[in-house]
Design a protein around this nucleic acid. Structure first.
Length: 621
RNA sequence: GGUCCCGUAGCUCAGUGGAUAGAGCACCUGACUUCUAAUCUGGCGGUCGCAGGUUCGAAUCCUGCCGGGAUCACCA
């Protein structure tokens, strides 16, 4: 017997069937998607549900009558539909077991089920983009996980993806670390101290800030300080509030440390050999440290752009735009673009002294990346505090007529808060990325020890699995939240290994792997039609069938959390199935074959889905 | 003040036009001589911020208000 398998997904097949049926029965052309089609809720019979209310005006019949007519039509015209039932205007379409048997036979033998063929388009994803004066923290982790996942999802949706980051390696911040190291460092290096490079540089940034704080406090008590408060303090403002507000002015105008740091910045910009050498030295320590953190997180980049290399290049673009009449120059010499026609404001592109700004650099890097890779799509993964910046940037690039200007997307995400409130470096509440990873892995190690499941493995194998489990807990905890939302990160919950967590999903996979190991060699897809589908089996098949569309939707919306929630739903359904039904010991050899295939497809989809989130799966745990 | 984002169970989050709004945590409860119990079963828990409007149907769309956050630099 020839097996007829439609290449269309079942959802689109039913949708187009609904369009045809409406045309034939009621003589009306339906727009695709006008009739909502959803999986049938568990309490009703059927696989997919068509809501027919929108047709009542067209057909001028009762919803139940319409649903019945559509149901009849589907049964006689659509091979896959074997029955239907109608409840209150909801048409529950029943697919025969043949359909699901065929689906499983085909999917289990599909290589890379859920991944699309290459679409020939190239996209650049920018993420991480740290400053080089401090180590990475929890906020960077959210950024990096989103960026990496987004990159993997776009790849699965058929794009050729390039991962890049822009490193802010210049400016006053790194000069503060450099100065503090010069003043108090006594030649300390990562090697001499055993401190990871980025942490060492961060240590001197903190040292600078605390010395500066002392200096500022002393100044506040001095006669100059007292005079300033009296003359500049606003009504209803406490002394502390005033000095909080005044800090930048103090740094720029009075501070001895501020003066030295600024002198260092000037020396750097002038190319002073000694300063540049120190700058290179300290940045190289930072990069070595970052590389370790990235490796531990399991991410990598195809290309790095350094602001020190690119910060001048945007200027040429602005000058060109000025001479083309796209931008305007003010009397004081500054250059701006007028974005009022697109609902924004005037945006300065060059300072009056001709130096470049943040946006100037971004204009330059956008052009350079296009020249490097020819990608017409770019995704910027940057926190939502920069929403306005990216609107202005994208509109400016449109005005310039850049060929990629319509393919730009800012993947904005909310800040990460702690249960105690915002992370504040001044209050020492910033959660360090390396510490956090070590902590979740430690928690996984404790739990693994208690369970004893891995005792027979070598120490290396065991440690590798423990790392996968710990990182899964951390990553899943962060990536499951919708990017747009601000999220609360509770360190206690992030190390949970039970419930809606990464390890819960890994556990479903591990259970399958264990069964498959015991089953031995499989001949995938060789089962005869299995008529007695159990509820959990049907639910699993419906979920599995949805996966390819889900990948496309997640790519279209740049939203990894959709994949994360799906993986949990699938794992949960599998755990239930596993608990209710025996696979290796079931009474029919054919059902056993079917269940092994169902399990191995579930494992593959879980592995793919979690891979799209940047989470690795262990074979045992 | 202008603009944008958010507001769903005690807590953390799903659900963005369809049926009686769902998970996890926490709390109470049952299930391991059986394929990994990092699992599964049952219970408890909601005026979906408030008020109008559109619709056969609204947590979801529109308007107003309240609360939280971000932003409105010749900083990045």
């Amino acid at each position: 017997m020839r097996i007829k398998i439609n290449s269309m997904s079942i959802v689109s097949l039913l949708e187009s069937a609904a369009v045809n049926a409406t045309k034939e029965l009621f003589g009306h052309d339906l727009q695709p998607g006008q009739l909502p089609l959803t999986p049938t809720r568990k309490e009703f019979a059927g696989d997919y549900t068509l809501v027919v209310f929108p047709l009542t005006k067209i057909a001028r019949k009762s919803p139940d009558a319409i649903a019945a007519e559509l149901g009849e039509w589907m049964v006689s015209n659509v091979e896959e539909v074997t029955g239907y039932n109608v409840i209150k205007g909801f048409l529950n379409v029943e697919l025969g077991t043949t359909y699901w048997n065929n689906f499983l036979r085909k999917a289990v033998n599909t290589k890379n089920y859920g991944r699309q063929a290459p679409n020939g388009k190239r996209v650049i994803v920018e993420f991480a983009s740290p400053n080089t004066n401090k180590p990475l923290h929890l906020g960077h982790i959210r950024n990096i996980l989103l960026g990496w996942s987004c990159s993997k999802i776009l790849e699965a949706a058929g794009y050729n993806v390039i991962n890049v980051q822009v490193v802010n390696d210049r400016g006053i911040a790194i000069c503060k670390s450099m100065l503090a190291w010069n003043l108090f460092g006594e030649g300390e290096t990562p090697e001499s101290s055993g401190i990871k490079g980025d942490h060492l540089v961060g240590k001197y940034y903190v040292a600078f800030e605390s010395r500066f704080k002392e200096e500022y406090a002393a100044w506040q008590a001095s006669s100059t300080g007292k005079e300033i408060v009296e003359n500049h303090q606003k009504e209803n403002e406490t002394e502390a509030e005033f000095f909080g507000r005044y800090k930048n002015t103090y740094f720029n105008e009075y501070s001895a440390l501020g003066k030295q740091a600024k002198a260092m910045l000037l020396a750097w910009e002038a190319g002073d050999a000694e300063t540049v050498a120190l700058w290179k030295q300290m940045n190289s320590w930072v990069y070595a440290g970052f590389d370790q953190t990235y490796a531990q997180l399991g991410v990598h980049f195809d290309k790095l752009y350094f602001e020190s290399d690119t910060y001048l290049l945007g200027k040429a673009i602005v000058e060109k735009g000025l001479s083309d009449g796209l931008f305007q120059k003010k009397q004081d010499g500054s250059v701006f673009v007028d974005l009022k026609d697109v609902g924004l404001d005037e945006k300065t592109l060059l300072r009056k002294d001709g130096t470049s700004l943040y946006i100037t650099q971004d204009l330059g890097t956008a052009r350079i990346r296009y020249d490097d890779f020819g990608a017409k799509h770019m995704v910027y993964v940057v926190a939502d505090e920069q929403n306005y910046h990216f609107k202005a940037l994208f509109e400016t690039l449109k005005k310039l007529g850049e060929p990629y200007a319509d393919g730009l997307h800012h993947l904005a995400y909310g800040m990460v808060d702690l249960p105690t409130g915002k992370m504040k470096s001044r209050e020492g509440t910033v959660v360090d990325a390396d510490d956090l990873m070590a902590e979740v892995i430690g928690e996984a190690r404790e739990n693994t020890k208690e369970r004893g499941e891995l005792d027979s493995l070598s120490a290396d194998e065991r440690e590798d699995i423990i790392r996968k489990i710990g990182l899964a807990a951390l990553k899943y905890f962060i990536i499951r939240v919708t990017p747009q939302k601000r999220m609360i990160f509770d360190p206690k919950e992030s190390v949970d290994l039970q419930g809606q967590t990464g390890p819960y999903i890994q556990n479903a996979y591990v259970r399958i792997k264990s069964v498959l190991r015991k089953a031995g060699e499989l001949n995938s897809g060789s089962f005869e039609d299995y008529r007695g589908l159990e509820e959990q089996e049907r639910e699993l098949l419906i979920l599995l069938a949805k996966f390819p569309e889900l990948v496309e939707a997640a790519a279209a919306e740049y939203d990894p959390s959709e994949i994360a929630n799906y993986c949990y739903a699938l794992a949960k359904e599998y755990h239930r199935f596993y608990h209710e039904h025996s696979i290796l010991n079931c009474d029919s050899e054919n059902v056993k074959k079917f269940r092994l295939d169902l399990s191995s497809l579930t494992a593959e989809v879980l592995e793919t889905g979690m891979d799209l989130l940047g989470i690795e799966m262990p074979d045992r745990m």
